[in-house]
Computed example of a mutant assay.
Amino acid sequence: MSSDKLKSRSEQEWLRGFLAHHPELCLGKLSGLDPKWAQAFNEVTVERHFELLRQVMDEHGIPWEHVYNMDEKGIHANFKLVTAIKCMSADGRSLKPAIIFARKDICMSQNGGTAIAQKISDAPLLLIYGGHSSHASPHIVELARQHNIHLFCLPPHTTHKLQPLNIGTFGPLQEAWVKQCDGFVNQHQKEMDQKDIV
Rank of each mutant, 00 (worst) to 15 (best):
D58K: 00
L143V: 13
N42V: 13
E72W: 08
S89I: 10
Q55A: 07
G112Y: 05
E175P: 01
H132V: 10
V44F: 12
A115Q: 11
L95R: 04
D34G: 04
I100D: 08
M88W: 11
L19T: 02
K161A: 12
P35L: 10
A84Q: 13
H147S: 08
N148Q: 06
S31L: 06
A20I: 02
L6I: 05
N78H: 02
R93F: 11
N166D: 08
W37T: 12
Q146H: 14
F152D: 01
C153H: 05
S121Y: 03
S8W: 09
D105G: 01
F18T: 05
I167C: 09
A98T: 12
A38D: 08
Q187A: 08
K190C: 10
L125M: 07
A40F: 00
V178E: 14
G113F: 11
E65C: 07
D4Q: 09
A40D: 02
K119T: 13
C107D: 06
N186K: 12
K96F: 09
A144M: 04
F184W: 09
A38W: 05
I197M: 10
R145L: 10
L95P: 03
H135N: 11
L154H: 00
Q189G: 15
L30T: 13
L151E: 03
Q194V: 15
F170N: 00
Q174E: 15
N148D: 03
I106H: 06
A115C: 06
A38Q: 13
N111H: 12
R48D: 15
A84H: 07
P156K: 06
R103W: 12
L162F: 08
R93T: 11
S121D: 03
L154W: 01
F18Y: 06
S109F: 05
S121F: 01
H160F: 02
K179T: 14
D105K: 00
V67R: 00
P63T: 00
H132Y: 10
I99H: 11
L25V: 00
F50I: 00
Q146K: 09
C107V: 10
I100T: 04
F101T: 10
S31H: 04
Y68G: 05
I140C: 11
S3A: 08
A84N: 11
G168L: 02
S134Y: 10
W37H: 11
F18W: 04
P23C: 08
K119Y: 10
